[in-house]
Design a protein around this nucleic acid. Structure first.
Lengths: 194, 194
DNA sequence: CGTCTATTTGAATGTACTCAAAAGCGGTGG
DNA sequence: CCACCGCTTTTGAGTACATTCAAATAGACG
């Protein structure tokens, strides 16, 4: 059960679990490995799992009719990810979740999650707190997407997630920041000179 | 207790409550009335309440250093509102929540909410589902704010919230949609002609 | 009726995009 | 180990979408 320790630790930041509760939780999990460029979620398929990232990195994005990609989330180890609209409503996904590095995921299925709530109601609390925090984060991001310039958004990104610059290609970061890769390149270049 | 019926009904869409649980819940609530232009939340003060809107309408917005206003949310009767970042983390607010109509609110304080979770853990579930849904909504909104043109955003808004056009002034809608009031005016005008 | 606020209109400007092409970089196979 | 191929990043010119500034018009409220 050692292999599940990181996810238990992640949860224990918000709720206290007895040994028995930990075991119940672990019994609902499965661990999978995915290779770089592999999809964890694809449009039109109902997203069955929430994934805790044990190691690696993933990109959640939407492909528009005009072939443009829009990145909703970039996630690394110790984060949870999914197409939450699909997962929570158990409806066909609209997003891709793709591994941008070889990754190891610990997954909880929708069915197991509902089961878990019955067995250990405390988990309602954990996932409530979890989604509260992510709702706040998304709101902040939306706020700067409507109120900041492309350059300001990039600066904020660098400040908040400095390690992401090395881990994700620039065109992915550009699509996360809501700008073209050409424009991001120009911003960077201008900074290097200025 | 009749006056609290709408909020009970709102909650009952997601969890079933016994009469006793309803009474416990109601005992934690307070009802207030606010006049148009009055603030329910103000920057620098810790937001003490979640508010269920019994009647009326409210605007949640941020004022930037350059005096620009950015609307995060427009809310009407049967919706919940607050500066959730401030409320959930019990830290000073950054947002204004202002009544755009005379309104009646049913409020639950942070302290009472924590108390309520202890007395009726089922409410963890309600607020989890509640915030899950709003996280999904915010994410969708963020998506079109980075992927759609101003006109497309306006069209979507009209389709989704037709009644809001009459209830909120145009400059408020413009700031919700992330564009200037002048540009929104031009879009509308162009449509009226085309 | 007058004042204050909200909306409309127009011209000039700016930010970021599209299109096109070159340069850089990394992995793979000969 | 080098050469090649595909993918990512850079560069530049032209363009479009949306903003700013300024002023006029329209509406709401006392």
């Amino acid at each position: 059960m050692d292999e599940f320790e990181p996810v238990i630790k992640n949860i224990s930041r918000f709720i206290d679990l007895t040994e028995e509760e930990k075991e119940i939780f672990i019994s609902h999990l499965r661990m999978i490995t995915v290779k770089k460029k592999q999809f964890v979620v694809q449009p039109d398929f109902v997203c069955q799992y929430r994934s805790y990232i044990l190691s690696g990195a993933l990109q959640t994005y939407l492909v528009c009719p005009n072939r443009q990609e829009h990145t909703i989330a970039l996630s690394i180890e110790d984060w949870w990810t999914s197409d939450f609209a699909s997962y929570i409503n158990q409806e066909p996904a609209t997003l891709f979740v793709e591994a941008t590095e070889d990754s190891i995921l610990i997954q909880l299925s929708y069915k197991d999650e509902q089961e878990l709530y019955k067995q250990v109601p405390k988990f309602e609390r954990f996932f409530r707190i979890q989604v509260e925090r992510s709702a706040i984060a998304i709101q902040k991001r939306m706020l700067w997407s409507i109120s900041k310039t492309a350059e300001e958004r990039y600066d904020e990104f660098v400040k908040r997630y400095p390690t992401f610059l090395q881990r994700f290609p620039q065109y992915v970061i550009a699509s996360y920041l809501g700008m073209t890769t050409q424009f991001l390149s120009k911003i960077r270049n201008q900074k290097a000179k200025g």
